[in-house]
Amino acid sequence: VKKFLNDPDHVVEEMLEGVVRAHQKHLMPAGKSNRALIAREGPRPGKVGLVIGGGSGHEPCFLGYVGKGLADAVAVGNVFSSPPPMPILHCARAASGDAGVLFVYGNYAGDVMNFEMAAEMAEAEGIAVRTVLTTDDVASSSMEDRDGRRGVAGNFFTFKIAGAACDRGHSLDACEALTRKANSRTFTLGVALEAGSMPQTRRPSFEIGEDEMEFGIGIHGERGVSREKIENADAIADKIIDRIFHEMGAVAGSRVAVLINSFGATPLMELYILFRRVEQRLKAKGIEIEANWIGHYCTSLDMVGASISILHLDDDLTTLLHHPCDTAALKIG
């Protein structure tokens, strides 16, 4: 697998050098390292600070969502690795406006351990920290074990709602509750057609047969939940939508936001074809699409595949969804 790289061991540092220069209107490093990036117009006194983060290889996640109206700071780990506690702590300090800090990140063993260590350190410094784990991946465990699910592309919605709640001056309690609600109403399912490849190995992390697909895939090149026969776009979209309908309580008249996300190598053309079917299915059920995003929002290196996320809105969430934000990867209003 060929890539535009220099030393594969420096891939994250070099990427971040590019990011810091490219997005200087939106963000800046908290200190000398680029592993903690702060929104230029983010943190302010009295506002709950929103800290997000995770491994690299998901760009524009997570750094693309730092800026006014969205996240105040992001901690950046190695490829597919949680950041360690120190940059998270730097983020918490910078994001703190003395109204508490909210950590929102995907539910992975590594992230949980590192963010918890950082939370303890921040608390020890007198910064109140609350945590919401994103758990939108329907495939990753059963409905009963909702809290055990992992966070995937749907964290886009949860971040957006959290950022809006913070920016609108809600209390730490309220921000946490709204973010939890957003997460609990977000459902994602992903399909990989080909595995991605790590900068250091440059080989596909696993093989998917000619006529196969990996269903219920995560965003770290982990295998999915099942290997299945590949189907056409409509059949894949149907399979995903059926699973999501099964979980989401949406009825005729409900409003949703839709995200059709490329895992990296799948182009926009195919995402539109998936969206077409999703829209047909929602329409048939009388569910209205309040807003949609189609593109590269949470990737897994150069994996070929796509995920569909649906946020089941209510009045609060609709307001927060439309709240303006200005970040490298998302501008609203």
Binding site: N78, S82, P84, P85, G110, M113
Partner: peptide
């Protein structure tokens, strides 16, 4: 070790 890697193994 922790600062260099994060991940699961870092905290462990």
């Amino acid at each position: 070790f922790l600062d260099a890697v994060g991940a699961s193994t870092g905290p462990l």
